[in-house]
Simulated assay, not measured.
Amino acid sequence: MSFDHVWLNAHLATMRDGTLGLVEDGAIAAKDGLIAYAGPRTSLPDHDAPTTDCGGAWILPGLIDCHTHMVFGGNRAGEFEARLAGASYEEIARQGGGILSTMRATRMASEEALVAAALPRLDGLLREGVTTVEVKSGYGLELGAELRQLRAARALGKARRVSVATSLLAAHATPPEYAGRRSEYAKHVAEVIVPAAAAQGLADAVDAFCENIAFTPEETAMVFEAAQGLGLPVKLHADQLSDGGGAALAARFGALSADHLERSNAKAIAAMAQAGTVAVLLPGATLTLRESQFPDIAAMRRCGCRMALSTDMNPGSSPALSLLLMLNLGCTLFRLTVAEALLGVTKHAASALGFKDRGELAEGMRCDLALYAVSRPAELCYWLGGNPCIGRVVAGAAA
């Protein structure tokens, strides 16, 4: 049989059928950037393709970080100090800090400066085995700066061998130009910023922050209607600080994902499951903000709501640079199983971005692979710190 490349002497975690899908002594073959075979070595068809001896490594689908804000200017280490002194995230935001602080630094930065600042953050993820990453805007809060963030995100995908999915998050906070006129700004996002991003092909999805310090469900719905009218799927920051109906709203719009969900009720979670909306869990924010209330994992399990796991990499509430660390936090803080955590950064993370061509090792999928020098996949969730990734493959070629 004709293959472009074959990986041998490896064990596979295929992520098929909602399990780890373990295959001892496995093999993977690639053809035209896709997986042409993934299974036991003994069943691999005869071939004369170049091979890589993986030295007994475990191969997983390339990891997917499905919720990041990695393109931004400046940092908020000073606010970190303030929180340690007792200030809450909400108090800092109401005093002009938080998102608006990063807005000011981001507006001042050129596209080139934003790319240069983001590349080291991206490179850290790639070293851990990430092959797909989502990047949000949301720190410009005006048309030019929002589009500049999205262009910078697209540029990251050209500068490195990685797939970058972009989300327009202009409805992240009310900018100072619209102080006291939040609804007017939401209307501006819906009528001006969303159409502009769509027309320039810069956004793969539209996101919003539905919260008592951000936008109401009604204002969020206005943005979502504009997005869907232009053929763009939607995502939502939901119920992080209060149960404000965000999860239910995401389900009503058939959102790709609803993210955070620390205070979502069981009924809304069940509605998400029925709508096919993925729950994206962000333990980095829980840890950084010292939250005492966690997402209702038991409710998600009961109704079969798919769970993804991500860094939420951002300068304020989750300055997390490691997706492998999120695997450990997902297990230790939220009590996810190893299978739930690893599905959360592969198959379910792909679903949270609307990708059907990646996230598992199966024939016909993109040949995006991550190789790890571990004795079993559980080690990826077990260790705090360290990085056992020994190789990445993107579309069938070593990266």
Rank of each mutant, 00 (worst) to 15 (best):
D123F: 02
D53E: 10
G97D: 03
G180T: 05
L336Q: 09
N328D: 06
S183W: 06
T19I: 02
A227Q: 10
T288C: 11
F215Y: 15
S2V: 10
A308K: 05
A370R: 02
V345H: 07
A82K: 10
K235E: 05
N9L: 08
F80D: 10
S292G: 12
A398V: 13
V345Y: 12
C389P: 04
P217I: 11
M365K: 15
R263V: 01
A109G: 02
L168C: 14
G364R: 10
P283V: 01
T277L: 03
G276D: 10
H348M: 01
S110H: 11
A173Y: 08
T332A: 12
T337C: 06
G96E: 05
I269C: 03
F215C: 09
A227F: 05
S322T: 04
E24G: 09
L333P: 01
G201M: 08
L241A: 06
G86S: 11
R366L: 01
A10D: 01
T52M: 10
C389Q: 06
L323I: 07
V206S: 05
V130A: 02
D357G: 11
P45T: 00
Y89A: 04
M272E: 00
R182A: 15
G97H: 05
N75H: 13
G386V: 00
A308S: 08
R358P: 03
L230D: 04
A221E: 12
T131I: 12
E379R: 12
A109P: 01
A82I: 00
A57E: 04
T277R: 03
A341H: 03
R301G: 05
A10E: 01
M272A: 02
L329R: 03
N212T: 02
D259F: 08
V6E: 07
A198K: 09
H67M: 07
K235P: 07
A250Y: 03
K235D: 04
W7Y: 12
T332H: 06
V162I: 15
A118P: 04
G73F: 10
G364C: 07
L44R: 05
P377C: 05
